[in-house]
Design a protein around this nucleic acid. Structure first.
Lengths: 230, 230
DNA sequence: CCAATACTGCGATCGATGTTCGCAGTATTC
DNA sequence: GAATACTGCGAACATCGATCGCAGTATTGG
């Protein structure tokens, strides 16, 4: 009888019989998050986590069925850091905008979140609270349930896009980006891409105020574009 | 003297000396793309490509320095499929919207594109043509070069988001998603997330017309929100 | 014309990854 | 106190990206 695959959130954290587990999902998630902060998502490997816990890789599989479960754990843990006690004003656009700002902060705090495949967005208990909160902001908006879910999905995507741009601007360039820049310089030199050359020639950074206003303006536009009153 | 890392596009496809290569970047890209279509990005491995070419994995490294180069190759190859011969009307919003539609078609045709890490968007020759085209649409818009590049980046992100939603709706659910749905049903049942329960209960699919109009409306709003005349 | 040169093909191999198996040990249940 | 259902984990497997070194081949320079 083959085990049918289920979400980690449907399995009990521990069974009722045997010895008490020496670790916990929360502890494993915390260790994994530390690894991700230090070395990106790619640095989150069963062996590294096991080493940090002082155990072997096989032990992890008592807590987690697969590496994806591990990422679910991490994702849900940091999602729980978003403050959902902020009271809703009743204005859907402003409420979601405020949530979007807090969400973007989360991305800036945990850049590896941007590397979590979107497809993989299974929601755990904390993400469910998040989603419930967002739906509460939309409670009296005349949209179908599916439309609301899509709107929230798009909103999160937009937040991720802005976060991505901000992070990229802030980080010191990697070897990859250096190579990229070199090739773009060559492109610019060959004369067949004058506009690329031009766009890259003089590029003053936007003042942070601009970026912030731009983010808020875009978010509002997205939301009203989706049919929210505003 | 350690080889400094450079983009694949800066290295010549073949040297001037030795025997003629038995394969080519284009051929390798084509094989890799076939693998990606069949099994997703994860199925694109040096060994599988080598097998498809009837050679060993080590041989590939005569054409490509790293797996990322391989993905650059794939990305640039399919980017070349976007029709850039469509004449620009002079209306930036409409021109970019039209480009966005063609780009979304590309995503729908090659769903694995959504799994290519955004960070990794090194542009090759064909992507450069694409970018030049987009910049041409923005030529007479009063924005800094950086702002234009960010606008195009955001536009592509939005396109990817919509493509992602469309693909998700069209695909038959994976085991992952089934598990996800089961957990959501449980969430709905426990009564603490009434809005999630509600949103998932009755969810008629939007007619395609709606989705299409929604995409076009959102794109327009994004562009005007970024400061384009409209 | 031929040696030096700079390339190509690729078998063998390395280190790291996710995951599985089986067994010894431990707490709960009947 | 035996059956049961767990936990911990060493050993191992398949697969991955990547490297090394050598044999073979086309071009170059004298």
């Amino acid at each position: 009888m083959p085990e049918e695959p289920t979400s980690i959130w449907m399995r009990p954290e521990r069974g009722a019989r045997g010895p008490a587990p020496e670790h916990s999902r929360a502890q494993i998630a915390a260790v994994a998050i530390d690894l991700a902060i230090a070395g990106g998502l790619a640095a989150v490997s069963t062996r590294q986590i096991a080493k940090a816990l002082g155990t072997g890789p096989a032990s992890l599989y008592r807590y987690v069925a697969t590496r994806d479960d591990l990422i679910d754990l991490m994702h849900d843990a940091v999602t729980g850091e978003v403050d959902l006690s902020v009271p809703l004003t009743g204005d859907p656009v402003e409420d979601l905008l405020s949530l979007a700002v807090r969400t973007k902060d989360l991305y800036l705090r945990y850049p590896w979140l941007l590397d979590v495949p979107v497809e993989r967005n299974r929601l755990g208990p904390r993400a469910a609270d998040y989603l419930e909160y967002a739906l509460r902001a939309l409670q009296h908006v005349p949209m179908t349930g599916r439309q609301k879910l899509e709107a929230i999905s798009l909103l999160n995507g937009l937040v991720a896009l802005f976060a991505h741009i901000e992070i990229q601007e802030r980080r010191t360039p990697t070897a990859r980006q250096a190579a990229q820049t070199a090739y773009q310089a060559q492109l610019a030199a060959d004369g067949r891409h004058p506009l690329i050359a031009d766009a890259m020639a003089h590029s003053p950074l936007d003042p942070p105020d601009n970026a912030r206003q731009s983010f808020e303006r875009m978010t509002r536009r997205l939301l009203t574009g989706l049919g929210l009153p505003g």
